[in-house]
Computed example of a mutant assay.
Amino acid sequence: MNKKVSIIIPVYNSEDTLKQCVNSVLQQTYQNIQVILVDDGSNDSSAEICDHFAKTDKRVEVIHMKNSGVSSARNIGIKCATGEYMLFLDSDDYYDECALEKILNFNGAKEVDLVIFGYSEISENSCKRVIFQSDDKVCSKKEFLIKTLDINWEMYFNVPWNKMYKTRIIKENNIIFDSSMTLGEDAVFNNNVYMYANRIVLADMSLYNYVTTNEGSLSRNKKPTIDLWEVYYRIFETYVLIFKAQNLYEKYENEINFRYQLYILGMLKNFQYNMLNKRNRESISDLRIIGNCLDKKRLGQLLNVDITSKILLTLIRYSQYKVVIPILWIRIKKRLYIN
């Protein structure tokens, strides 16, 4: 098998990690590759490092662009990709030595639309292998969707960097990253891919090194509640559409709605964080957003949350904000004291 593979690497102020990242690609045992470095307006030496790689290895292409965010950088990479398959690699991460060869062995043998593989989560003091246990067989779309219902593996199925995509599926269906989103764009992108990918394999091996110690272009701050809800809703909406397209929604409605409930709890947690920097009037406005997400049916389905959170969400649903805010302040102060 000698099919061309495109690796898209968005780069922003990554001078400390970029060489290790790119070398991990160029030193792969599988050599038929196109490496697309998209410099997203870096103001350190990243641009020069990219240009150096392009001068010394003809497989490397560099695009310099005005800073527009990681989604725009990835979209430029998609447009330039000429390989039959494509992968996304973050500039502070790196591959294992034989990663591409091992991935292609799965893909080459079975001609699948998507390969999802494990990764190692690397911090300063630990290295944790994250692998979805599977029998490595090709899944139909329905079989695969049922596996994604396990909320404990949401990140595994949402991120783009532990996947090899068939380029044709992405380009023919005009699937891109939504550059208007600063959070959750990966999940929406992959949900759109899952709509069209029919043969998927979960490779039972760790091939990608996800470094969590570096603060870089993908680090996130807490978001305003309205922004967070828009993100959660987009993710949930695209997720539901896939299940409805496969006539699976009614059968798995409870499991899918549990994901919605967790998103609401995520908003509540984010809201508590933001309370430290907001006036009560702004806080009440955010609570109304959470309350509007809680219809009577979904409120009754909140079975797997702690009793305090359930009481708080019930009070929010019925606009009892004067009671809710003091309770939240008590929770915040207790956590600050404990920490």
Rank of each mutant, 00 (worst) to 15 (best):
L87W: 05
I8Y: 09
D186E: 15
K223F: 09
T314W: 04
T308W: 04
K297V: 12
I327P: 12
D93G: 08
K223R: 15
L265G: 01
D135K: 05
L26C: 05
S206A: 15
A47Y: 10
S206C: 13
I316T: 09
V211W: 00
Q320K: 15
F236Q: 15
T213M: 04
I175H: 07
T17K: 09
N339D: 15
G291W: 08
S126Y: 02
E61K: 06
S71E: 14
K222W: 15
K3L: 06
R317T: 12
Y94S: 12
G118L: 11
L328R: 08
Y263L: 02
S24P: 11
S134D: 04
V240P: 03
N174F: 12
Y252R: 09
L241T: 11
W161M: 09
L18R: 09
V70L: 12
D150C: 09
K222V: 01
S91A: 14
V231Q: 07
L202D: 03
G77M: 03
F157G: 11
D57S: 05
Y208V: 00
L202P: 08
V305G: 03
K19G: 02
I290F: 10
G266H: 03
G266Y: 02
P160Y: 04
N339Q: 15
R129H: 07
E143S: 06
R259M: 06
Y337N: 09
M195E: 15
E143L: 04
C293Q: 10
V138I: 12
C80L: 11
L262D: 07
S71L: 04
N105K: 10
I226G: 00
Q28A: 01
M155N: 11
Y94I: 10
W229N: 00
L262Y: 05
V138L: 06
R129F: 04
A109F: 07
N13E: 13
L18H: 12
D306P: 03
C50W: 04
K223E: 13
I242Q: 14
N32D: 13
R288E: 12
N339T: 14
T167N: 12
F157R: 11
I175S: 10
K278M: 15
M86A: 04
F177P: 07
S46M: 10
E143F: 03
R317A: 15
Q34D: 08
I122K: 10
C50L: 05
Q27H: 06
T213R: 04
K296S: 12
S283I: 11
S68M: 14
Q34M: 01
I290K: 08
V211T: 03
H52N: 13
I289P: 05
Q28F: 00
D96E: 15
K222L: 08
N277F: 11
K102I: 06
V60C: 10
M164K: 06
L18N: 08
L276V: 13
I9N: 07
L207W: 06
I284C: 05
I9L: 08
Y233I: 02
R74H: 05
K102Y: 00
D93K: 02
I284F: 06
S217M: 10
Y318C: 09
V323I: 13
D227I: 00
S134V: 01
T182V: 14
T56C: 10
I256H: 02
S14W: 02
D227A: 05
N209A: 01
I36K: 01
